[in-house]
Simulated scan of single mutants.
Amino acid sequence: MKRHPEDSYPGGCAYHGDCLEGMAAGPAIEARWHAKGHVLPPDHPAWAIEAYYIAQAVTGAILMLSPEKVILGGGVMQQPQLFPLIREAVARNLNGYVQADEITERIEDYIVPPRLGAKAGLYGALALGLEALGETPARR
């Protein structure tokens, strides 16, 4: 990860130090700011730094994979103020390199939270389990 210019946190990953997980995961937020993310106010500097790191990962995924949509979930992404910051940082990172209307004109529909919110992982696991048992909703 390219380091945020105002971030002196060394990173929390036991294997890589300053990888995405080490810089942007919930434990990194808590170690850096001495508070869990959910107690930090929406205008706290933590969110600009988080967006900076997450946007690097999203930018890389866009450039390598050209996804139809980017869905960001998980605990850290429960902070709705992150989405506009991430979208802005991704657009800045891409700097016009990718000329796709989804990104240049409708980025708020391109980088999104899961439609099922915090329950997306649970429902996805349930759907995979049902599929493995041959009990998909279409077969019931």
Rank of each mutant, 00 (worst) to 15 (best):
M1Q: 13
M1T: 08
M1C: 12
R3W: 14
H4C: 03
Y9K: 10
G12S: 13
G12R: 01
G12Y: 08
C13I: 02
Y15P: 01
Y15N: 14
Y15L: 15
H16W: 15
H16T: 13
H16D: 12
H16I: 15
G17T: 13
G17K: 13
G17R: 09
D18V: 08
M23E: 02
M23N: 07
A24Y: 01
A24C: 04
A25H: 08
P27R: 05
P27V: 10
A28W: 05
I29N: 04
E30C: 13
E30M: 07
R32A: 08
W33D: 04
H34C: 12
K36Y: 06
G37H: 01
G37V: 03
H38T: 14
V39N: 09
L40R: 08
P41D: 04
P41N: 06
P42N: 15
A46K: 10
W47P: 02
A48I: 05
A51I: 04
Y52H: 11
Y52A: 02
Y53G: 02
I54E: 00
I54F: 01
A57N: 04
T59M: 01
G60Y: 10
I62H: 01
L63W: 12
M64R: 14
L65N: 05
L65V: 15
L65W: 09
S66T: 07
S66W: 01
K69W: 11
K69M: 07
I71P: 04
I71N: 09
I71V: 12
L72C: 09
G73C: 11
G74C: 12
G74Q: 06
M77D: 11
M77C: 10
Q79L: 03
P80E: 13
L82V: 01
F83V: 08
F83C: 06
P84D: 00
R87H: 11
R87T: 08
E88T: 07
A89V: 11
A89E: 10
A91V: 09
A91L: 12
R92E: 13
N93D: 02
N93T: 10
L94H: 04
N95A: 13
G96A: 02
Y97C: 10
Y97R: 14
Y97A: 08
V98R: 00
V98G: 03
Q99F: 14
Q99E: 13
Q99G: 10
D101H: 15
D101A: 06
E102W: 07
R106S: 15
I107T: 04
E108V: 02
D109L: 09
I111R: 05
V112I: 10
V112P: 02
P113K: 03
R115N: 05
L116I: 01
G117P: 03
G117W: 03
K119G: 07
K119R: 02
A120C: 04
A120P: 03
L122R: 03
G124A: 09
A125D: 10
L126R: 06
G129P: 10
G129D: 15
G129L: 07
G129E: 12
L130F: 07
E135F: 14
E135A: 14
E135T: 02
R139N: 06
R139G: 10
R139L: 12
R140H: 15
